[in-house]
């Protein structure tokens, strides 16, 4: 999970992200960005996420916790 914040920042189209930021606050937050997070999770972490799980995670750290939980 070392590069998690960098990877998510790239998908959210910003230079960097902090854990407390809400996902809805990003300008590019839309269905394609959600799909790109599902694809990243599949490709880089070997985990399967759904749109509703991502939406429910609410913040960047919520998303990180979701990744950690799925990996374990």
């Amino acid at each position: 999970m070392e590069n998690f914040y960098e990877e998510i920042a790239e998908l959210l189209e910003v230079d960097s992200v902090s854990g407390q930021e809400t996902l809805l606050s990003f300008k590019c937050w839309d269905s394609l960005t959600i799909l790109s997070i599902i694809a990243l999770a599949d490709d880089n972490y070997g985990i399967t996420l759904s749109t509703s799980e991502i939406n429910d995670s609410k913040t960047v750290d919520g998303l990180k916790n979701l990744f950690i939980q799925k990996k374990s």
Binding site: L11, L32, T33, S36, I38, A39, D43
Partner: peptide, 12 residues
Amino acid sequence: YISPLKSINSAT
């Protein structure tokens, strides 16, 4: 292979 352009992974 479902992935938007921004998450396209070359290896995949």
